[in-house]
Design a protein around this nucleic acid. Structure first.
Lengths: 225, 225
DNA sequence: GTCTATAGACGGATAGAC
DNA sequence: GTCTATCCGTCTATAGAC
């Protein structure tokens, strides 16, 4: 009820608006927003559980409990379990993209003047983030869930994020398709080794500067043997 | 029964040997060998199923059917399901090690004279092998099975195999601990990207020569910026 | 060693009341 | 939208006959 009005006055106002569909619209916007928030809560809870038990051990019962629901209620928000993996995948790509851009804006590095610093900063940021959540790393960049592939919609998020990585590399002068592939392999290799052999250490992450220097030297001297 | 002898004669001979425990020993050796072969058959069947359905989808029922048994019979050969993963892990490391050594012996490359060719050959061999069996790659080098870690015994197989990789690198003049880490990351990165993005293609594997050149240049010019 | 039978648990998903 | 109840399938592992 609207504050400071009698019920009758409130009724007249609502009717007035209602006749022009304003109330209906406002209410449905509120509901849609609430729904979106609950979906986000569920996805966040799913990440907490994946962190705790592993990505493949996620169950709808546990997930529902984590958000104070029962398992069947999740079907009001997601069509199936894989739809939840899908939402996790898309959200992770969007957030990783945003986090990298935010960090770079704060770092104040001129990519043209110091590509080494630019690339090393980005690589270290990405690697640290991979290590901070191994389930996230697995879902985004490996194929852990048997049979699952991102839906077209979720896949689009990863494509968009990767397009930004390419722009980001271009600022450091890396534009050639094959050079981009070599870059992704180099950085992915550090992540893979760090996570597989020493999930909580820094042994491979600490090789970032060397790896970046190695990479830049290679793309400068591409022709020479 | 021994061929060409009467039952009585056979009995006398067996008794003669038996009194010196020879028969008992021979029989138990045969049984042990048979047991070992069945174990190997089970592990081979497990790999076939992992290839078909994914590593995590392996079930004892399917596995037993694949070797013409029922699920409970597998417990005569392995204590549990994870013991089977363990045997797969150990076998994969032993075979990968042996395959690499065999291939190099045939390639007739002098590591001291041409480290580039030596390293590129080994890398390409390893990468091709990773791609040939993605479940094998996952079990050996990533952490796919939630909660599972190789037993000390299985782990030893991977340590032995890696020790050989180090000797192999040393032949090309790569001995520094950090250089070895950089090498494993570089090659692992090609595998990770190839398998994640293009499981049946050659886009990253075809970067092997560039990656090796890049790596060798880096370890030669370590000091210089 | 292999089998049948089954324990015992857990999973995703659905039906239908409220 | 949320719930209870439940279906129906899955799995690993064990008991005990043969």
């Amino acid at each position: 009820m609207l504050r400071g009005l009698t019920a009758a006055a409130t009724g007249r106002i609502l009717t007035m608006f209602d006749s022009s569909n304003v109330v209906r619209t406002l209410v449905s916007q509120r509901l849609a927003q609430r729904r979106r928030r609950t979906r986000d809560d569920i996805v966040d809870a799913a990440w907490r559980l994946a962190e705790r038990d592993g990505l493949a051990s996620l169950t709808l019962r546990d997930l529902a409990a984590e958000v104070g629901m029962r398992a069947p209620s999740l079907y009001s928000y997601f069509d199936s379990k894989v739809a939840i993996y899908d939402a996790m995948f898309a959200q992770a790509h969007r957030e990783t993209d945003a986090a990298l851009r935010a960090a770079e804006a704060e770092a104040h590095i001129d990519p043209a003047a110091d590509p080494q610093a630019w690339l090393a900063f980005g690589a270290r940021h990405w690697l640290t983030r991979c290590q901070a959540s191994i389930p996230r790393y697995q879902l985004m960049y490996t194929r852990v869930i048997p049979g699952w592939e991102p839906s077209p919609d979720a896949y689009e998020a990863s494509v968009a994020s990767f397009a930004r990585t390419r722009e980001w590399l271009a600022q450091a002068g890396v534009t050639d398709e094959r050079d981009v592939d070599l870059w992704t392999a180099t950085v992915a290799g550090l992540a893979a080794q760090q996570i597989a052999n020493e999930p909580t250490g820094r042994r491979w992450i600490d090789l970032t500067d060397r790896a970046v220097r190695m990479f830049l030297r290679e793309i400068e001297q591409k022709g020479t043997p």
